[in-house]
Amino acid sequence: MAKSNEPIWWSLFSAGGVIAALLIPAFMLVTGLILPFVDSPDEIALRELAQHPIARLLLFLVISLPLFHWAHRFRFTVADLGLHGAKVLVAVLCYGSAIVGTVVTGYVVCTL
């Protein structure tokens, strides 16, 4: 048995878990349940708010880290719920999607 390289995924999972726990509920409330009910929201003001450097960083972290949190949790849950084979494939699909999502988010956030 050799020391595993799991720490990289576990630390991303943990960081994602903290961000998701602290910020996702509020984000869901704002964008999913308050914004739709605002009468003609000010698109320009919203875009300017999102373009602020701190907002860009925050949006990047709030999207990418929870994706890694999901990837790690989902990879293990899939095995728990019965899929015991194809462990490497499942891991590649999970972390792979999180990496792709992170890259796309990085691009979007930089070019807002």
């Binding site: 048995m1 020391k3 595993s4 799991e6």
Partner: peptide
């Protein structure tokens, strides 16, 4: 001990 404890069959299997 870390050779065993930090291996994949050890702490990293725990959910």
């Amino acid at each position: 001990r870390q050779e065993v404890i930090a291996s994949h069959e050890a702490i990293w299997q725990c959910t």
